[in-house]
């Protein structure tokens, strides 16, 4: 972790507008460790849901993940790399977007486990394009066999600025439950 980065705890927030000299593209990175057993391992998938003021996804295409690589306007984009990253161009986010929610779900493959039971040291961090870490949230208790999806954090509008909040909210209903809450057809 960069010594200059702001460290968040669950529920806390920080102002990206204050931390960034120029409000442009930020890179949202995700990380975790999965303890491997003998059988199938949990496959975690990072995603972003781009929401309006009502807290709902603007459309089904506003769920960004490895198979839906960018929002129609291109402002939120999944980066195909070894690292799990999503780029957000804050300057290009349309006016009708109120927040971008970052969700990690365990792929609900029929062949288990599709949960966070073996997950350790999960985190989400925000860097600028140079890779310098600005904000980091180490999730307090990411290991939970009942949790099948989790909101790691969100970037949201606050008056005329952008802020980031550490959420760390687990779902027991998986991606299906998340999709229902945000009005996405999966």
């Amino acid at each position: 972790m960069s010594p200059a980065a702001v460290r968040l705890v669950r529920g806390s927030n920080a102002s990206l507008s204050e931390l960034l000299p120029i409000l442009g593209t930020v890179v949202v990175g995700f990380g975790w460790k999965v303890i491997e057993g003998k059988g199938p391992i949990a496959e975690l998938v990072p995603s972003a849901i781009v929401c309006n003021a009502a807290g709902l996804a603007l459309s089904d295409e506003h769920l960004v993940f490895f198979n839906q690589l960018a929002t129609p306007d291109g402002a939120v984009e999944y980066v195909e790399d070894d690292d799990e990253q999503i780029e957000v161009d804050l300057a290009a986010i349309p006016e009708d977007v109120d927040k971008i929610v970052f969700v990690v779900y365990a792929d609900p493959d029929l062949r288990q486990p599709g949960n966070f039971g073996a997950v350790r040291n999960a985190y989400v961090r925000i860097s600028d394009r140079s890779g310098a870490e600005i904000v980091r949230y180490d999730i307090e208790d990411s290991s939970d066999i009942d949790v099948t999806a989790m909101i790691f954090g969100e970037i949201y509008r606050h008056r005329d600025t952008w802020k980031v909040r550490a959420v760390g909210q687990g779902y027991k209903t998986g991606l299906k439950g998340v999709a229902k809450d945000f009005g996405v057809t999966i």
Binding site: D60, Q68, D107, P108, L110, V184, I186
Partner: peptide, 12 residues
């Protein structure tokens, strides 16, 4: 299949 149907869970 659309992109979410094609990439989530299992096709059985």
């Amino acid at each position: 299949l659309h992109r979410r149907q094609s990439a989530i869970g299992s096709l059985v």
